[in-house]
Design a binder for these strands. Structure first.
Lengths: 204, 204
DNA sequence: AAATATTACCGAATCAAAGGCGAATTATCA
DNA sequence: TGATAATTCGCCTTTGATTCGGTAATATTT
């Protein structure tokens, strides 16, 4: 979808800000950055960009903006998706090729216009979620994670971990899905959330 | 439908402008770029191109031009696979986007020119393999299955099941990966093997 | 080559949409 | 609940698109 000059400036500002700080700007900061004195104007811009599918955010949530990657804005051809036929059931006694299904499944069904990357899992910390060593997790890049979700978290600048997220006051509890392991509770300040797990892929 | 020389120039100008700036030009800018002093002229060009299906735009919306790719005008791109960037590790303290990896992962990596279909899993019979209700299994259509592999088996023309396969003389043992469930042992004759599981996909 | 279409072009008036403001209101978090 | 940030409303300004009534330059057809 087309975009105006000003909208592009806003979009670029958001991208740069998030890139630099790791979290999205408040409306006031956006206003400052673009020379706007009214939050209403900022709000309108953000709403327009959201309507055009260039970003995502939660209603009335501060710093909840996720910038989505722009495809089709440039003449780069969008990568097509490899779709596999989906067979829900198998008709009794029939060989599989005889079953007709119009449905398919592909990675695109999962990524669905989100900004996604993949991480290979090391260790058994998510065993009870049936995510095990060697699996690939599909992570949606977002700084807008919610309680109870499986997230990729960076604690105190050390390695990234895969845990369930729970906010407790000014602390954050990172809960492994493995009864043999203990949760990590740390101040929210020292945690960087990289994204939310939206899928799992395993190869044999 | 044919295109005139001038129309071609306008089309090319639009493409280049959008490519360079990330947003479409105003009619005035188009005029400047092509040496036209009347907006009416520009308007007519744009209208013509739109009628010929070479671009799309919204009525009375500024900078709303979307240039559509012309089939046959450029080389056709082969259907590509949707590839996601693979980040093996995350550099300490760095936000994820800073990590450079050339690797990607896609369904094509798994299917690898095999004949593959997908089945959604019902029930908990493969729980100990970390395949659970709702997961999608990628099945390679083959009748060349080996001992110990997870297979899709059709027993006596009843429903298909997901089990580990073990041959025992003229019998076949289908072993659920769930300690709470018992294996099925049946004559090899009454089992139809539909394929071997080569991957798992889960959506949240 | 003359007659006829079609395409390309102009300038100015008009009108719609985008961009902007401040202030009051409402939601969310700590 | 108090602080902080997001939402909404009415209104104004600026930017850009549309339309009208024409002329000149190219193609196309006869």
């Amino acid at each position: 979808m087309a975009i105006t000059k000003r909208q592009r400036q806003v979009y670029d500002f958001l991208q740069e800000f998030i890139q630099r700080n790791g979290y999205s700007p408040s409306f006031e900061e956006i206003g400052d950055g673009l020379g706007l004195s009214s939050l209403a104007t900022v709000h309108k811009h953000i709403s327009n960009l959201e309507k055009k599918g260039l970003l995502k955010r939660d209603y009335n949530r501060s710093r909840s903006i996720d910038v989505l990657p722009v495809r089709g804005m440039f003449k780069r051809t969008p990568p097509k998706d490899l779709a596999l036929p989906l067979m829900g059931r198998i008709a009794a006694g029939q060989p599989i090729e005889a079953v007709e299904t119009p449905e398919t499944i592909s990675l695109g069904d999962i990524t669905r216009s989100k900004d996604v990357f993949v991480l290979q899992v090391k260790g058994e910390s998510m065993k009870d979620e049936h995510i095990v060593d060697g699996d690939y997790v599909l992570v949606e890049k977002t700084n807008n994670t919610h309680d109870g979700e499986i997230v990729v978290a960076l604690v105190e600048g050390t390695d990234a971990t895969l845990k369930r997220l729970y906010r407790e006051g000014s602390n954050i509890r990172l809960q492994p899905s493995n009864t043999a392991m203990k949760p990590i509770v740390v101040p929210a300040k020292s945690v960087q959330l990289q994204g939310r797990v939206i899928g799992v892929l395993r190869k044999y």
